[in-house]
Computed example of a mutant assay.
Amino acid sequence: MTATRRAGSETRAEILRVALELFTERGFEGTSIRDLSEALGMTKSSLYYHFEGKEAIIQALLASRRAEVDELLEWIDGQEPGPELLRRAALRWVDSTGRERILGMRFAHANGPTMARLAAQGGTRGWFDEAITRILGPDAPMPSRLRARMAFDTVSAALFAAQGQPASEADVLAAARAATIALTAPD
């Protein structure tokens, strides 16, 4: 096997991209380090140079998602508070969804036990609670908070609904956008 030489940051990005695809397709448990190294055209030792193992790869993928949420939080903090802020923030999230985030959501759907374990370790489920509190305030009633959470989770819901359907990513995003608008309509 001939290893492909790349810059360190390019190699890490490629490892994350390929790992996400394989973990989604074969499952986290069903994908070995050997599978990853073969798909990348590198030795296992080269892969271990960049990541200690599969768990470290998942942590890096989650860190990337967390950075996207932090970016959204910064944007929220710079906005004028008001009744339209929830809609604008949730649509910003939906509209910024690209292929990698969709793959991440598909991974989450396909790897329930792994995601449950990560959630128990402080995973992704509560990340939008911070955004919701900043938008609605800490004393917002629970039904309003749940609706806001649903507005941020429309892409995942649309992906779930699209399983087994001939829906494209554009179809999923269009459905998610429409659901976000409906969920954030004034009472």
Score class of each variant (00 low, 15 high):
residue 1 M to Q: 14
residue 4 T to H: 15
residue 4 T to C: 12
residue 12 R to N: 08
residue 17 R to P: 01
residue 19 A to F: 05
residue 19 A to M: 07
residue 20 L to G: 14
residue 22 L to W: 12
residue 23 F to A: 02
residue 24 T to A: 13
residue 26 R to M: 04
residue 30 G to Y: 11
residue 32 S to F: 11
residue 33 I to A: 13
residue 39 A to L: 09
residue 40 L to Q: 01
residue 40 L to K: 02
residue 41 G to I: 05
residue 46 S to W: 02
residue 47 L to A: 00
residue 47 L to N: 00
residue 52 E to S: 10
residue 52 E to F: 01
residue 52 E to H: 01
residue 56 A to F: 04
residue 57 I to E: 01
residue 57 I to W: 05
residue 59 Q to P: 00
residue 64 S to L: 13
residue 66 R to W: 12
residue 72 L to R: 03
residue 75 W to F: 13
residue 75 W to Q: 03
residue 77 D to H: 06
residue 78 G to H: 06
residue 79 Q to P: 03
residue 80 E to I: 02
residue 81 P to V: 05
residue 84 E to P: 00
residue 86 L to Y: 06
residue 89 A to V: 02
residue 91 L to Q: 07
residue 95 D to V: 00
residue 98 G to Y: 06
residue 98 G to N: 09
residue 102 I to P: 00
residue 103 L to A: 12
residue 104 G to H: 11
residue 104 G to S: 09
residue 104 G to W: 09
residue 105 M to H: 04
residue 106 R to W: 01
residue 106 R to M: 05
residue 106 R to L: 06
residue 107 F to M: 08
residue 107 F to P: 00
residue 110 A to M: 08
residue 111 N to H: 04
residue 114 T to E: 14
residue 115 M to F: 07
residue 117 R to W: 12
residue 122 G to H: 11
residue 123 G to W: 10
residue 124 T to V: 12
residue 126 G to K: 09
residue 128 F to N: 07
residue 128 F to L: 14
residue 133 T to I: 14
residue 133 T to L: 12
residue 134 R to T: 07
residue 134 R to V: 10
residue 137 G to L: 12
residue 138 P to C: 06
residue 139 D to K: 10
residue 141 P to R: 13
residue 141 P to V: 11
residue 144 S to T: 06
residue 145 R to C: 07
residue 145 R to A: 05
residue 146 L to E: 14
residue 151 A to V: 05
residue 154 T to V: 04
residue 155 V to I: 09
residue 155 V to M: 06
residue 156 S to C: 05
residue 161 A to T: 00
residue 163 Q to V: 04
residue 165 Q to H: 08
residue 168 S to L: 06
residue 168 S to Y: 05
residue 172 V to C: 03
residue 177 R to K: 08
residue 179 A to F: 01
residue 181 I to H: 08
residue 183 L to N: 02
residue 184 T to V: 05
residue 184 T to N: 03
residue 187 D to G: 09
residue 187 D to Q: 08
residue 187 D to V: 07
